[in-house]
């Protein structure tokens, strides 16, 4: 299976953006809430801690807030993220874009790339907990609802990303 040889090009960004906006709008209109990604991870973390050390959850309001009644599979954001995985997979498979690979710069070793991916993931986890959301729950959702905190988050997140991307630009060339 050589998916890359038959992969179709990505959609026009404005068209995909309007589509994404309609999904976000449908969520607002039908469910009264926007999109999210980090909340599902918070629920997963709270559920894991609860399984190992229930007392740690009781003493931590963040975990207590994110522990879903009836288990994680009854949590809105966990089910939504499962949908994201299915939707992304379906879209890629229909466009011939499924392929096992690690994306990295031509002069970046596998270890360097995966190290940066791990470090980046950990930092995003910290930032998303502090900001009470990520690019989905704050930037997209809060942005469309004109929330002040969401626009502050968009501003500092992009500023920091441009700075770090400039410093590490050789890893993608």
């Amino acid at each position: 299976m050589n998916a890359r040889a038959t992969a179709r090009p990505y959609a026009d960004p404005y068209l995909a953006g309007v589509g994404l906006g309609l999904v976000l709008l449908a969520s607002f209109v039908l469910a009264g809430r926007g999109l999210g990604a980090s909340g599902a991870f918070a629920t997963a973390a709270a559920t894991s801690v609860n399984a190992v050390a229930p007392s740690a959850v009781a003493g931590n309001p963040y975990f207590a807030d994110h522990l879903a009644a009836g288990g994680p599979l009854r949590d809105w954001l966990v089910v939504e993220i499962l949908g994201v995985i299915v939707g992304g997979f379906l879209s890629a498979s229909l466009a011939g874009r499924l392929a096992l690979r690690v994306e990295r710069g031509a002069h970046t070793s596998l270890r360097e790339r995966l190290g940066a991916a791990m470090a980046g993931g950990v930092l995003m986890g910290g930032g998303a907990v502090l900001a009470r959301g990520c690019t989905s729950g704050q930037a997209l959702t809060g942005g469309a609802l004109l929330s002040v905190g969401a626009w502050l988050f968009i501003g500092t997140a992009f500023a920091a990303a441009y700075l770090v991307a400039f410093v590490t630009r050789r890893s993608w060339t």
Binding site: A117, G120, L123, M124, G127, A159, A160, A161
Partner: peptide, 9 residues
């Protein structure tokens, strides 16, 4: 913090 992580990831 999030933005720095996003550029690394």
């Amino acid at each position: 913090v999030f933005g720095a992580g996003m550029a690394l990831a």
